[in-house]
């Protein structure tokens, strides 16, 4: 289960980098926000215990002790990002971003707007009882960072 969380972290970081990639390249990163500025699960989507099971046969309510998996700090081209995933049983109950360093205030603004959306979507994908993700054919390398890869790990018996 720990590995599943790590795959979702990778997917989140990849998506985040893609969104921030919409604007021009940035100077070397400087610290703009403290570690607590974007964490804390303020988004309704991040409410612990919300949503269905990660699989159809899973329980309605999360079971077992909550475990947190802290992601490593990722360099994503426009700054640095770390993600924490909280897992109960096989269900992801929260995704937070404890660390966000961006190169410029504009990147920071953009990140603050975008992160809740990304969080809700990661949660949605993780808890909406999805068994597969259809999409343009991915390479074996791209698979490793895909939601499908995370699902394969989550559903492992």
């Amino acid at each position: 289960m720990k590995r599943a969380a790590w795959y979702l972290i990778a997917g989140t970081v990849a998506g985040f980098a893609g969104v921030l990639g919409l604007h021009g390249r940035a100077a070397p990163p400087v610290l703009v926000a403290g570690p607590k500025s974007t964490g804390g699960g303020a988004s309704p989507a991040a409410t612990p215990g919300a949503g269905g099971g990660a699989r159809a046969s899973g329980p309605v309510q999360p079971t077992g002790p909550a475990r947190q998996v802290n992601g490593v700090v990722e360099q994503y081209g426009y700054g640095e990002l770390s993600v924490t995933v909280t897992v109960r049983g096989s269900q992801i109950t929260n995704v937070s971003v404890p660390l966000l360093r961006t190169a410029e205030p504009y990147s920071q603004q953009l990140a603050v707007q975008v992160l809740p959306m990304l969080k809700s979507e990661v949660l949605r994908a993780g808890s909406a009882r999805i068994y597969a993700v259809t999409g343009a054919t991915y390479t074996s390398q791209a698979y490793a960072d895909s939601i499908q890869s995370a699902l394969d790990k989550l559903h492992i018996k």
Binding site: G15, A132, V133, T134, G135
Partner: peptide, 27 residues
Amino acid sequence: GDVAAFGSPAGAQRWRVGIRHPWRADA
């Protein structure tokens, strides 16, 4: 990325399949 299925997972009528967003790998 191309899905073929029959039957259903336990406790559900059919298989739920997400369609990847073209510009966001995690959406």
